[in-house]
Amino acid sequence: MDNQNTVYENPRKIIADALVDLGRQDERVVYVSCDSSLGAAGGPFNQTFPKRHFEFGIQEQNAMGEAAGLAASGKISFIAAYVPFAAFRCFEQIRDDVCKTRLNVNIMGNNCGFSVGPLGPTHVVVEDVGVIGSVPNITILSPADGPQYREAVFKAAQLDGPVYLRVHRQKARRIYEDDYRLTIGKGDLLLEGSDVTVVAASTMVANALDAARMLKTKGIGAEVINMATLKPIDSQLILASSAKTKKVVTVEEHSTVNGLGSAVANVLATQGPALLKKIGIDDHFAVVGEWAQLIDYYGLTPEKIAQSIENFLNT
């Protein structure tokens, strides 16, 4: 819920600035682009450090292999492309050349979720977390706001291993202060409550917070967790919260198959008793539309999330 102090930030701009600052701090950082050198968060880096920018045009399989070869030679590779091309087209290169080898390759999946809804099902991908998450050794980050995106860039570079960083096109509402520090593998408890645990990531964190405020007016205390690290999932935080609330709702702009909801389900099914409701996209290719239209269509607006949670608690 916005007021006059509400700030929205463009994740790609945040990442672009972070990459330049990171590049100044560490000359090992290189940027690999697939005809994405101008827009997709890399432009300023490429202008600042042209020798450390490598362009590959429309050939993601080779680019991913080259990013691995650079990392195997001591570089810290950042590679960016639209989600389907960054995560799927070169999936085997990610698995064999990046993950098996555990190299410092940081894959930026641009325009995740419904970012580019009008482009249709070839470009709108809601399966990437499931696909990438199935591979050992890789960390998946899906930040919620500006400071968290910035931190994700720095922490990904520091981590001695591959990272898949989901980057949304939608401007992100500020949640954290400038001095926010991300710990990979740890979720953030944003709001305490005792009736239901709401676990969200990316764009859905702001919507979950708004939904929680709506629920509060009805006397329902929702505990909201921002799970920016989708893999490895913070099972400790999930278990601690669900032990209190006994009911968990996950909210994701992603398929409910093998996304955040499934990761939380895996924790609950093996370690803690709690009922779970997954809010997201059922197992199908999304319809075509603008981001706001799709968020509404799939029940991901604050109002619809609040209603779903209320219904869940009443069953």
């Binding site: 680019a63 080259e66 691995a68 070869g69």
Partner: peptide, 13 residues
């Protein structure tokens, strides 16, 4: 089909 891309990356470095 993986070796030459990786080799190129090492050569770039």
């Amino acid at each position: 089909g993986h070796g030459l891309p990786v080799a190129n990356g090492m050569a770039l470095a």
